[in-house]
Simulated assay, not measured.
Amino acid sequence: MKRLVLLSVMLLIAGGILANLPNLEEGTALKVSGKVIDQATSLPLAFANIIYNHTGTTTNLEGEFVFQINYHKAENSLLIKFIGYETAAIALDTDNTNLFVTLTPKVEMLEEVVVVTAEQVLMDVNNYHQINYEYSDQLLSSYYKETLTTDKDCIYLAEGIFDIYYPTVYSKEKPTIHARKTRKKTFASLDTMFMPLIHGHATDMINGVTRRTDSFVKEEKLDHYTYTKEGLTWYDGREVFQIHFEPKSKKADCRGMIFIDSESKAIIRTEYEPLLHGQNFWKKVKWVEEYKEVNSSWYIHRVSYLGEWDQHGQTVSFEALLVVTDFETITTKPELTESLTKDDIFFHQASSFSENFWEDFNYIKLDVKEKKALGF
């Protein structure tokens, strides 16, 4: 029986390991699961980044994760990263696959040696853009989930494993999405529930702010916003600028927060809310994007979307989550069968929501509300 390993705070420091190098063969398949909590509060950390080599996943709302990897001798540690916390580095071992991970907040006060303005930081983002982000065609392996919930109930749940052709920004090609395995469940009649955004795939999510020509971080858009430095924080042992931005002109279309690595000048996280003027439907809309660093380049890792509206006196939420679990650089556009169009609704109704459904695919564990709706 797999033992539960309780990792002490002293051991969970950046670069720390639990044991000597394990005697694992190259390419050994490992399935690692666990829970990530905040050391100071003992509360679960949702959307902590779980990284191994160029593969990755994230925790669910309860801080839980499951991750299937192939062991490489050159990369011994599984990394758990979260903005504002010390990175946990856990040595891989066949006896060490059910983890309870405590992340320590990094509370050291930071002071800038060289004072730079928020506008200068954003200009650096643009100047370093070409060397920071992927500029080759990529084939992404991804997990996608969308849910419709009220304050109390889960109304609709759908999940899928995708292959995504992700062309370079220099290409005229557009991303192509292929669904490898999907499932969905409807828990209530949707006849009276207006669902404006459920369309069954992540076409609108995969193009992050670092790629879109109309993005609020592009040099030609900077004059339309007011950028303010909120201070410094940490990510993976490095200083990170926290920059808040607000509309300054009528050509601005959102507000939010940007987290920028002070060393590489790369955006590692964005949180932004589109302006909702001129409409009376949406109560709240929010996007969050995160990037992961592999060999000095930053790749899209996680995108989440939240849209809320009021109906019959209650708040209804549509949430979508896309996590890139693996990628490879390619030189030829792949032949993806059954590629999706923008209006496709492709999820297959599922009679079983067992975790065995996903076989060897990486996925995100269901949260408490979803399990309750399924009768777990």
Rank of each mutant, 00 (worst) to 15 (best):
99 L>H: 00
79 L>P: 09
329 T>D: 14
132 N>A: 06
4 L>E: 15
70 N>R: 15
35 K>S: 09
180 R>S: 03
73 K>E: 12
355 E>A: 12
179 A>L: 09
126 N>L: 03
47 F>Y: 14
193 M>V: 15
208 G>H: 06
186 T>R: 14
295 N>H: 08
312 H>I: 09
227 Y>L: 11
298 W>G: 02
239 E>R: 15
348 H>L: 14
75 E>S: 15
131 I>K: 11
11 L>R: 00
214 D>P: 05
250 K>T: 15
236 D>T: 02
360 D>R: 05
6 L>M: 12
147 T>C: 06
69 I>D: 04
279 Q>D: 05
231 G>V: 04
7 L>H: 00
114 V>T: 12
24 L>E: 01
345 I>T: 15
357 F>R: 03
45 L>G: 04
375 G>R: 04
20 N>L: 15
366 L>N: 07
246 E>H: 08
205 M>V: 11
59 T>C: 07
158 A>M: 11
226 T>L: 07
340 L>A: 02
344 D>C: 04
203 T>S: 14
216 F>P: 00
6 L>D: 11
276 L>R: 04
159 E>A: 08
69 I>M: 01
73 K>S: 14
52 Y>A: 03
320 A>V: 00
99 L>Y: 00
34 G>S: 08
253 D>N: 15
361 F>K: 10
84 G>P: 08
239 E>A: 14
141 S>I: 11
271 E>R: 07
7 L>F: 03
158 A>P: 05
